[in-house]
């Protein structure tokens, strides 16, 4: 599937991060281990759109408004 945003991911979808929103939030995401080019997995999509992603052994919850701004390729 071509370019999409993280809020569209469904439970169980692996995805590649294509573009992060710019600014401080990008630096914060890179520190946490989410960088452009990484492959992650969506492990839960809550009603309303809060997304829980997994990178290696780490689980991170991402709010809907932020997920909308993260461009990904869902596989």
């Amino acid at each position: 599937m071509p370019n999409s945003t993280l809020d569209k991911a469904k439970k169980g979808n692996p995805f590649i991060v294509v573009k992060l929103p710019s600014g401080n939030i990008k630096s914060q995401l890179i520190r946490l281990g989410i960088a452009e080019g990484d492959t992650l997995k969506c492990i839960q999509r809550l009603p309303g759109g809060t997304i829980v992603v997994q990178k290696n052994r780490q689980e991170i919850a991402v709010g809907f408004d932020l997920a909308k701004k993260i461009h990904v390729i869902i596989q």
């Binding site: 809550l46 309303g48 759109g49 809060t50 829980v52 919850a61 709010g63 809907f64 408004d65």
Partner: peptide, 19 residues
């Protein structure tokens, strides 16, 4: 607690907060 925060995130968004 962090999981509760995740579950309630969207509801909290409505009152200007995050989970």
């Amino acid at each position: 607690l962090p999981r509760l925060a995740t579950m309630l995130d969207r509801s909290f968004n409505k009152i200007g907060l995050n989970g």
